[in-house]
Design a protein around this nucleic acid. Structure first.
Lengths: 347, 347
DNA sequence: TAGCATAATGCAAACGTTTACATAAACAGA
DNA sequence: TCTGTTTATGTAAACGTTTGCATTATGCTA
């Protein structure tokens, strides 16, 4: 069993070297390796397999990519890796992709259009198989991509432009309504909302669903106060928003934060001001990242089941890759994958 | 200015198409694009540049990779993306790599040897330029890699095998001593430590430095109690360790956790048991991830300046890529990049 | 036995780059 | 005018795959 391999060191095995060792042509080796749909003598298969194992052969993706015009790489463009929820989503996607023979190329766009564009360009040059946008922003190159035939999947935030590309994530409006229902059940009369930018689908839908349901319910509710500003750093936005809130006379019964990070920022400010959460103030947020249950027991939240996102993405992705013809808006919108959320009450 | 481009849609521009448009050979285009060290007529350069711009040409990395035998991809194998500190480090590295014209390929090894190996194999097939191991475990393929000539950098945890490859991170032993000094200054007599596996450099050195300094100081200190177990999930290890600790008679003055996540786990357990941190119990950890200052004000911690790691990695990496001959242990060990840590006191 | 389908494999082109080498043009020195 | 040198550019091979087509061997039908 002791072969003298691993002394060729640097030079990796190639189809040619495997073919030579197995005494066949490179075409045959390629066919065996790829399980091509042709008959190959059992004996030959065995010989090739052995040579492959002996030489520790792995197809070099450069050659393959050049020939086939595509790769096994799937790019994930995430808006902010510093956000634990997004990191958890990336991790989940990575898992699912690996299980399916893809490799994940993960980038951090910092939610900036120019960085996103630079990455998209790079992905084009790399000939990635597909691009998964975890919270996308509108950008010129993204516009081009929609026409370019490279499959796109939008996670957590829908395509900022209404497009035929699928969305994977929770039903944000429904989540907003659930939070409203909970508030109503608690009999709260004075509620504040902390938000970041509302131009994107996730935040906007959450807020709409929430307000809509409160309105439906009627009752003697005070008008919902809204705090926040557009911007990238939810932590600071939350901090500032809470500061403004606390500067007002009335302390609300509850503060709804449209993301975990907003809640974290608000929490720091409130704590600094001497408030105890949730004793003095109930806080509810959206996302419910994996750390909340450990160190944010003061926070109730709508949980995005991030562990499920990987598989959900894979399922829409494989559907897209298998029926590349189905480019009609109807066909693809039907591929949206809405995953179930859950309101977790803590504290 | 209105060229009729972008109607060629799918078919990307290639050297050939650019060459044709500029009226030169593909060799010339390649030289211009790559800034080859040869004289080229100013006029020609201009013509090529224009054609490149008109066609929105980008070199396809498959062709380049095939020809050059390497890529601009640098792989980052991180042990756990769910750890905010590691996510922050990944983000920092990504930033620095992008600035230097590389692309980051980020993987999550879950600190498992088999997954790590699978990725290493994949990286080999992809012909990545270098591999950055953010918390590595020993594995057979890693052994092969050390000989294979692919640059390796170890971040946060040294190569589990003593090797000539550089380490980027804090001086863990010194950090441990700093924590000990702080404890001594506070006059604490009874201290507990919560740890995960101690077979790796980071945890081991932290603990050694800590104990060593306490011992040096002498005094009427109680023996340091240690809790914890080997395993991957620091959160649960911390939780369990705190449970064991609280089951004992004496409540210590302080609990030192060898990582943030251990502290989070311990915190949940302690809170659940009705303890207020830090009122009833001081906790100190190592890492100090980016969220601590927002939602873990109860936790003091040795801060790894993760924002600095990206640039530190880049600097050792470029040094390695430029002097590939310098493979002597001395030369490379000298390349270790120790970044400064800081003990942040909160609460 | 000739003719022909079928099964198994080989041959060679193509993918887009980079780069060693060849060539052409221009010019200087004699 | 011829030779030699410099400068700018072109030619073609190579990198490792996949795959349409050609080829050979085998078995079957008539």
């Amino acid at each position: 069993m002791k072969t003298s391999r691993s002394y060729g060191k640097h030079s990796h095995a190639t189809l040619a070297s495997v073919a030579k060792r197995a005494g066949v042509s490179i075409a045959t080796v390629s066919r065996v390796v790829n399980g091509a749909p042709v008959k190959i003598a059992a004996q030959t298969v065995l010989a090739v397999r052995k040579a492959v194992a002996d030489l520790d052969y792995r197809p070099q993706s450069a050659g393959r990519a050049l020939r086939k015009g595509t790769t096994q790489i799937i790019a994930v463009l995430a808006a902010n890796l510093g956000n634990p929820t997004m990191a958890a989503i990336a991790s989940s996607i990575e898992h699912a992709l690996r299980q399916n023979g893809y490799v994940m190329l993960l980038c951090d766009t910092h939610e900036q259009a120019d960085i996103q564009d630079e990455y998209l360009r790079e992905m084009e040059a790399l000939r990635v198989r597909a691009v998964i946008m975890v919270v996308a922003v509108p950008s010129p190159k993204l516009d081009e991509f929609r026409q370019a035939g490279i499959p796109l999947v939008f996670v957590n935030r829908r395509d900022p432009v209404r497009s035929p590309f699928p969305y994977v994530g929770i039903d944000n409006a429904a989540a907003g309504r659930d939070v409203a229902d909970y508030c109503l059940a608690k009999g709260w009369r004075d509620i504040a909302v902390i938000h970041a930018s509302l131009v994107y689908s996730a935040g906007r839908e959450r807020l709409q669903g929430f307000l809509e349901r409160l309105q439906q319910a009627g009752g003697d509710m005070r008008p919902v106060r809204q705090f926040g500003s557009a911007g990238l750093d939810h932590l600071r936005i939350g901090e500032q928003a809470m500061q403004e809130l606390l500067a007002q006379q009335m302390r609300p019964d509850a503060v709804i934060c449209l993301s975990d990070l907003l809640a974290y920022g608000a929490y720091k400010q409130a704590s600094g001001a001497g408030l105890a959460i949730p004793r003095d103030l109930t806080m509810i947020s959206f996302d419910d990242g994996p750390l909340n249950q450990w160190i944010a027991q003061w926070l109730s939240a709508v949980r995005i089941p991030y562990e499920l996102i990987g598989n959900a993405v894979i399922s829409v992705l494989t559907a897209m890759l298998e029926n590349p013809q189905d480019k009609t808006p109807r066909a693809q919108a039907a591929m949206d994958k809405i995953i179930p959320h859950q309101l977790i009450i803590r504290g």
